[in-house]
């Protein structure tokens, strides 16, 4: 077998870092080869970020880095240094759920809900760029998020509903 680094190798000693997650600074220590996905879930207990492959092949682990959706399974915890990380836990504010969350719930866009955090964050980024996305835009921009339950249709409808409400400035029904 390929030699793994021995357990006492210096590459295995933890680094201490301040991570900006959901608007708060967290002092976290983790080994340098941990992905942000692992740091969030295992070291910060933010288990809202899910995983389905850990190889960039499903989109389930999507988070926002400075507002841009990225795959937390293919980025190191180290690499989030100096960036603003947003996870599903930070999507709802003190005054309630994000319009996308409400619309997803109302229209049944979350069946098992496992892909949902990734879709919501990806959708949030889409709306930030294009507040009234066409179906074609949604197909393209959500092409990196797999869902085995919904067939995507309710997800599109929910994003469109949220977009319309956000345009009108009414957060929910």
């Amino acid at each position: 077998m390929k030699p793994a680094t021995e357990p006492d190798s210096p590459a295995r000693s933890k680094v201490q870092m301040i991570l900006r997650v959901n608007g708060e600074s967290h002092d976290v220590a983790f080994v340098p080869h941990k992905t942000l996905l692992e740091v969030l879930r295992e070291d910060m207990r933010l288990t809202g970020t899910k995983h389905g492959c850990e190889l960039g092949e499903c989109g389930t682990c999507t988070i926002l880095v400075d507002g841009v959706p990225r795959l937390s399974c293919l980025m190191l915890g180290l690499e989030s240094d100096g960036h603003d990380i947003r996870t599903i836990e930070g999507m709802a504010g003190a005054c309630g759920a994000h319009p996308l969350q409400t619309a997803f719930a109302e229209l049944g866009a979350a069946q098992c809900g496992y892909c949902t955090p990734g879709f919501l964050l990806a959708a949030e980024a889409v709306l930030a760029r294009d507040p009234t996305p066409s179906r074609a835009t949604l197909v393209e921009e959500l092409g990196g998020n797999l869902c085995r339950c919904t067939g995507y249709l309710k997800i599109y409808e929910a994003i469109e509903l949220a977009a319309a409400r956000m345009q009108k400035g009414t957060p929910d029904a």
């Binding site: 390929k2 793994a4 680094t5 190798s9 210096p10 590459a11 295995r12 080994v31 340098p32 080869h33 941990k34 992905t35 996905l37 692992e38 995983h51 492959c53 850990e54 190889l55 399974c73 190191l76 180290l78």
Partner: peptide
């Protein structure tokens, strides 16, 4: 979970 092997990082 698929994990990375250890490495040094610059």
């Amino acid at each position: 979970m698929m994990r990375l092997p250890p490495f040094r990082y610059h």
